[in-house]
């Protein structure tokens, strides 16, 4: 009962303080929302880059050619051996005959097929898609070690270039998110410090009448929480509008780019923003008010 009364009091006080210092708190909400928005936009862009790289990388198949001595039946069964291996997402078997057909069609006619049908120089082959591009080199090495395989064709360098690019964007993304998170922390901290400074007399009075630090913090924490939550909601709405109505239409014009649909991640962003906003408000308020409590 007592605790409930206090919580009600803190909520009332926090909301009242928010109204009372509305210019400063609105500024804090805007600034924090801007930081959250930039962080969110960057996270989405990095996710899009990753998706694009993954999609392009996935099109980059490994092709293996079986030894000449592998007969038709063994060649088809070899697909099961491949599927049992790690990091193999899918395999497509191309028989010698199909291979020759493709070859002759690519060169412009059936004449080639007809001339080589009886003495087909093409080997049985498999087109392999890996599940994780990071492991492509190991997979290629494993394939090369298999006696049934005569040759492995894989563009490891291309894959590595993709991976490097992805790692760089990831690194820049994480660094930017950390920097923006720190900036956001400073903004909230400054705002709360200013409002707390303006109310240091009030804090002194509360201490004088026997308020514990925990009690005094209550209202300030609520205020910080409100700032954090409002910033999170504001940033969420802005991110949705910015991404869905401005970025995606532009990106969809470039066929090479794959983009993550907002509808598939909206819940992650909403939860992430709300949790981050709340934590920001609470944790930063907690530490900012600390020095005003030493009376």
């Amino acid at each position: 009962m007592k605790k409930r009364g206090n919580i009600r009091y803190f909520l009332k006080e926090g909301a009242a303080n928010f109204r009372l210092h509305r210019i400063m708190t609105t500024a804090a909400v805007m600034m924090l929302a801007a930081c959250f928005l930039v962080i969110g936009t960057f996270v989405m862009i990095v996710a899009d880059i990753n998706k694009t790289i993954d999609d392009v990388g996935m099109q980059n198949e490994i092709v293996i050619f079986l030894q000449d001595y592998v007969d038709d039946a063994s060649a088809e069964d070899f697909g099961y051996t491949l599927m049992d291996m790690e990091n193999i997402a899918s395999v497509t078997f191309v028989s010698r005959d199909e291979g020759l057909k493709d070859f002759s069609q690519n060169l412009g006619g059936d004449e080639i097929y007809d001339s080589y049908a009886d003495d087909n120089p093409i080997r049985h082959s498999y087109h392999i898609i890996v599940s994780d591009l990071n492991g492509v080199e190991d997979t290629v090495n494993m394939l090369r070690a298999m006696p049934q395989i005569a040759r492995v064709r894989a563009s490891i360098e291309t894959v590595n270039t993709f991976l490097k690019f992805r790692n760089v964007t990831m690194f820049i993304g994480v660094a930017l998110v950390i920097i923006l998170a720190l900036i956001a922390a400073v903004i909230v901290s400054n705002t709360i410090r200013l409002t707390t400074f303006a109310r240091r007399e009030e804090i002194a009075i509360m201490k004088m009448v026997g308020a514990t630090n925990r009690f005094i913090r209550g209202a300030f924490l609520v205020e910080g929480g409100i700032i954090g939550l409002l910033s999170a909601l504001f940033a969420y709405v802005l991110l949705f509008v910015l991404y869905q109505f401005l970025l995606v239409p532009e990106m969809s014009l470039i066929t090479l780019i794959s983009y993550v649909s907002f509808s598939s991640v909206w819940h992650l962003f909403l939860i992430g923003y709300l949790v981050a906003g709340m934590l920001y408000g609470l944790v930063i308020s907690f530490f900012t008010i600390k020095k005003f409590l030493r009376v």
Binding site: K2, E201, E202
Partner: peptide, 20 residues
Amino acid sequence: RLIDKKTVYENVALAIRVTG
């Protein structure tokens, strides 16, 4: 040392509210 934004009642109540 009264809090100007609070009413007389709230100012007095503060001293007992802090006790829980």
